[in-house]
Design a protein around this nucleic acid. Structure first.
Lengths: 165, 165
DNA sequence: CTTATATCTTTTAATTGTAAAACAATTGAG
DNA sequence: CTCAATTGTTTTACAATTAAAAGATATAAG
């Protein structure tokens, strides 16, 4: 009987997949999956509620922080640049969905939170959005979802640990 | 001893996680993982080669099609809008990395492919990029990567099957 | 042939996004 | 206190992105 280790070694040399290494293919699959789903969610939110995905995401962050967040904390959580958040908040304030107030403790900072109207609107957005996502994912069994949760977390940990910056 | 099924049922009712249903949390994790990694890759490509991620992605598509692709096929594969590809190709043609030629079979269409220079440059980009991604993912074992590949494919299949459009 | 419909691409207008520099206020070291 | 470094935000310039409409060509049905 052959040593499975040898087999593994051979496989790793011989079985070079089209499209490059395992890691590269995994990255491409992760990206295309996220793109596919985010496109579907974006179009659904726009069609049903005339709201864009970035605005929805921003409101989602504020929804779970009734006392509000600083712009810097918001941009950190959304993983986008500060300047981007400045503009998004500006438009949401214009629409009356978000309030932007100076932080009493630090005159450099602003604290933003959902307005009453913003809170009410987001509640409706979120309900439909969750229903939509459950529908999209309905062919997955629980074990698959749990495995994805765990393994995506491992991927994040690896990417953070091995970052060059 | 208690029946585990009962326990599962109770869990599914009682243990409502912060941030909503399982599906929603999975989507948020997928999104944040893809954002984290794509940000790292984007900054790395920019720092080392002064190339943006969308341009790199476009060149990657053309790299494996030496005979070129129509703009519509390119936008389908990249999962972005037609107008977006028009602009990206325009800039890459300007830089001399991509060629844009009329399709002899269809006067509406254009076929784009990498120029000699584009091909040479992309080869260098890709080599460094793959090295970088392997580094980012180096703390993942093979089983985790394989499971992610399979389960992300299942997720895509579910999302496509259950799309409303 | 004509006309309707479909396909391929661009244009338009707006939003979203980044990076880098500028600005303003805070903090910490001496 | 003073000044250097840090932090929070905005501004600037530009790239990437979408949706929707428009333009151009192709195809198919009469």
């Amino acid at each position: 009987m052959r040593d499975p280790e040898v087999n593994d070694l051979e496989t790793s040399v011989r079985n070079v997949p089209a499209g490059g290494k395992r890691e590269l293919r995994l990255w491409l699959r992760l990206l295309s999956t996220a793109n596919l789903v985010s496109g579907q969610i974006r179009r659904n939110l726009r069609a049903h509620f005339d709201v864009t995905l970035p605005r929805f995401d921003l409101m989602a962050q504020l929804y779970r922080e009734p006392n509000g967040l600083r712009l810097s904390e918001l941009s950190r959580r959304m993983m986008v640049s500060n300047g981007n958040v400045t503009g998004l908040v500006e438009r949401l304030v214009q629409e009356g969905l978000v309030l932007r107030e100076t932080d009493p403790d630090d005159r450099r900072a602003f604290v933003v939170r959902l307005s009453k109207e913003g809170n009410a609107r987001f509640t409706r957005f979120a309900e439909e959005n969750e229903r939509f996502i459950v529908t999209l994912f309905q062919s997955l069994d629980r074990a698959t979802m749990d495995a994805l949760m765990d393994n995506l977390e491992k991927l994040k940990t690896s990417a953070r640990r091995n970052a060059t910056d």
